[in-house]
């Protein structure tokens, strides 16, 4: 295993002073999980709380990486240092992954931005901890905004995207993306819609579909409460059109979060979710360990011999954990 000669506090100090390599190493530790990751996340947590988290999600080929690149350029031009965490699925068979779409940028943007690719590594529990920890690291080091880019399929991705302050859902014309996004539950978490490749036939249909679904109340009910309705922006990430509007929409949404007080609700929600995820993971791990103890084996045998039911056995195991 790769060892780093520096201690975690040393790496953290170096990262704070702007050394990319140290931040890169810390992200690896966070991703690997376990006690070390918790230590890093603990350090970061104390310094975090200043960034704005943007989730960008869309199907493969929706052009969301190109779009992210455009946003980075614009952020960079206005003096922002932004970070991107690009989450891609690992192969369930081999655990390997091809992470890509590191966006090509101009020199200035290169200087002002930090891009990190992260594989899901087959366990949603790990990702649910690694992503918030990575966000806090970026936050602590001073990146603002932090962009989380995910492929908009599957619960994990929706959860990750939904945990952002502002969630941007990217759809493309003609592929039934809007309908798919609805099915995946993305409409409920979207704060901004982008119809990318707006020069393609069917772009206006996609816009109309989204409008209709919003009318039918597929959103979380925030509109009635707060008067915020997710805007639909037509964009062409290859040519860069629409990017400025997206930035403005993000700013509008951020202002709305502040003025309505929802920002606190969201951030509390995110903290709550992180604690909950950690609890579940801890209980899950301990429960698995219990299954291989004498007591656990006895419970399994009792179920196999039909002396007790699986439900009863599970309750007994949980009770034994809680009483420890």
């Amino acid at each position: 295993m790769k060892s780093s000669k520096e201690t975690i506090p040393q790496l953290f100090e170096a990262a704070l002073s702007g050394e990319r390599r140290s931040l890169g190493k810390l992200l690896t530790l966070v991703e690997r999980g376990g006690e070390t990751a918790d230590d890093v996340a603990g350090l970061a947590h104390r310094k975090a709380g200043n960034t704005h988290v943007i989730g960008i999600t869309g199907a493969p080929g929706s052009g969301k990486s190109t779009l992210t690149g455009r946003l980075l350029e614009l952020f960079s031009q206005t003096g922002h240092n932004s970070a991107v965490l690009a989450v891609d699925p690992s192969s369930p068979l081999t655990g390997g992954a091809i992470l890509g779409d590191r966006i090509r940028m101009d020199d200035l943007t290169d200087e002002n931005s930090f891009i990190r690719s992260m594989a899901t590594r087959g366990h949603s529990g790990g990702l649910a901890l690694a992503v918030p920890a990575a966000i806090q690291l970026f936050d602590a080091v001073g990146y603002k905004p932090v962009i989380i880019e995910t492929v908009g399929v599957g619960q994990v991705e929706v959860d990750v995207a939904g945990a952002a302050d502002t969630t941007v859902v990217v759809v493309t014309p003609g592929m039934g993306d809007a309908v798919q996004a609805n099915k995946a539950g993305l409409l409920e978490v979207a704060d901004i819609f982008v119809v990318n490749k707006s020069d393609r036939p069917g772009a206006n249909d996609a816009r109309r579909d989204l409008d209709l679904m919003l009318d039918l109340g597929h959103i979380s009910g925030l509109e009635e409460k707060t008067g915020y309705r997710p805007p639909i922006i037509m964009a062409n990430s290859l040519e860069g059109t629409g990017s400025q509007e997206i930035i403005e929409a993000i700013e509008n949404h951020a202002n709305h979060l502040k003025s309505s007080g929802s920002i606190k609700v969201r951030q509390d929600q995110r903290t709550l979710m992180e604690i909950q995820n950690r609890v579940e993971l801890l209980i899950g791990t301990t429960a698995k360990e219990t299954l291989s103890t004498e007591f656990g084996k006895a419970m399994i045998n009792a179920v196999l011999n039909r002396e007790t039911s699986p439900a009863q056995a599970a309750k007994s195991i949980v009770n034994s954990l809680l009483n420890d």
Binding site: S90, S91, T94, G95, G96, A97, I98, L99, G100, R102, R104, S117, A119
Partner: peptide, 16 residues
Amino acid sequence: VARILRDAGMEVIYLG
């Protein structure tokens, strides 16, 4: 090569 390494369980970042 990218696919070979992925199939061997590695994470490949292909810059292009």
